[in-house]
Simulated scan of single mutants.
Amino acid sequence: MPWLYLLIPLAFLIVFTYVPLGNLLYYSVTSWDGLDPDKPFVGLANYVEIFTQPQLFEVFGVSLYYLAATVAQVFLALLFATLLSFNLRLRNLFKAILFFPNLINGVAIAFAFLFFFRPGGTLDITLQFLGLGGLSKQWLGDPAVVNWSLAGVQVWRYVGLGTILFIGAIQAIDSQIFEAAELDGANAWHRFRYIIVPGVRRITGLVAILSISASLSVFEIPWIMLGGANGTSTFVIQAYRTAFVDGKVGLASALAVVLLLIVVAIALIQRRLFKDEVDLV
């Protein structure tokens, strides 16, 4: 009976995950152009090309901006979750506000932030209202700040998801622990440092790996807002262009495999870093 219940989800998993993955691995060792019925086998030539042509791999430098934003994202999510897990007025409203961006389509977000960052747009008007007009820049035109701007969009979009996950973890901590700490004279910082942070350790690992995976596979926001121009091309955009503009599906598949291996490696490292006592038993 259990296998009968699992039959349909397993079928979907195999058809839509493992079969495409097998095809990806196969394409990555061919020089297929995406149209020709013949797929010439080239072995590891595509992988050699990736690591010997810097322009194919240097786009990972853009991911560093999103990785840096990931740190801010995890910190803000934990901060908001801590504030919203205790007696705070309108906390349910704030939860909804924080989580709402996670429900919006990426295309809509991209177009909204085009108006937000444009010269004389929402951000510049806000800075002028606050008397900080001198800080206005070409947010999407200056190569020095454009990737920071796009990374900020990523933080705004996903910080709510991390917040909700952290809230669940904090509320799972026995309330008697907080009461005992308060009786012992622990202040808010001590409760956060010695109770909340260790108590949400596993969720921190989950939020971190989700955020890092998202930062390495950024596509829609920089693609829709700038088309990957002005130094905003990510690894996924590079793979897309290689496949559908240059007609090198085999090479693009190898790029996708490299990205997959990097994400898996990060997940394994994260598992080692956040291994707790339960895992050690």
Rank of each mutant, 00 (worst) to 15 (best):
P143H: 03
I195D: 07
G185H: 10
G199S: 11
T126R: 01
L114G: 12
V153F: 07
Y194R: 12
V146E: 03
F111A: 05
F116K: 00
A151C: 03
I196L: 08
I170W: 00
W156A: 11
L206F: 10
V200K: 00
Q138D: 15
L98R: 01
Y158P: 02
V145H: 03
G133R: 06
F111T: 13
A96W: 11
F117K: 06
N187A: 09
L150C: 04
N187I: 08
F178M: 11
V155S: 07
G131R: 06
R191I: 08
F111K: 09
L161C: 07
P143E: 03
F192A: 03
P101S: 05
G121A: 07
V107W: 07
F166S: 02
D124L: 03
I195A: 08
I109P: 01
R118H: 08
A188T: 14
A180Q: 11
V145L: 08
Q171I: 07
N147W: 02
L183H: 10
R157A: 13
G134I: 07
L183C: 12
L93K: 04
T126P: 00
L130K: 02
I195S: 09
V107Q: 09
K137T: 09
T163P: 02
G168W: 07
N187M: 06
T126V: 15
N105I: 11
I170V: 13
Q138W: 14
I109G: 01
G121L: 03
I177G: 05
T204N: 08
I177R: 12
D142V: 06
A112Q: 07
I164P: 00
R118G: 05
G205H: 10
V153W: 03
N147R: 13
D124S: 11
V145G: 04
V159D: 00
I195E: 08
Y194N: 12
G160M: 02
H190I: 12
Q176V: 06
Q176Y: 11
G131Y: 05
I170G: 00
F117W: 12
G106H: 06
P198K: 12
I164G: 01
G134R: 10
Q154T: 13
Y194E: 13
R201Q: 13
W139H: 06
F116Y: 15
A172D: 14
F115D: 13
Y194A: 11
L127D: 05
R191Q: 15
H190G: 09
A169F: 00
L150F: 02
A110C: 07
F100N: 06
F129C: 03
Y158K: 06
G141W: 04
L98W: 01
G121C: 06
H190L: 14
D124P: 04
A181P: 09
F94R: 10
W139D: 01
L183M: 15
I104F: 07
Q171N: 12
L127P: 03
D142M: 09
T122E: 02
G120T: 10
P119V: 00
Q138R: 13
V153Y: 05
V146Y: 00
I195P: 07
V159S: 01
L165I: 13
D184P: 12
I104V: 15
F94Q: 09
A169N: 00
S175M: 10
G199M: 08
F166R: 01
V197Y: 10
R201E: 10
I203L: 10
G160W: 03
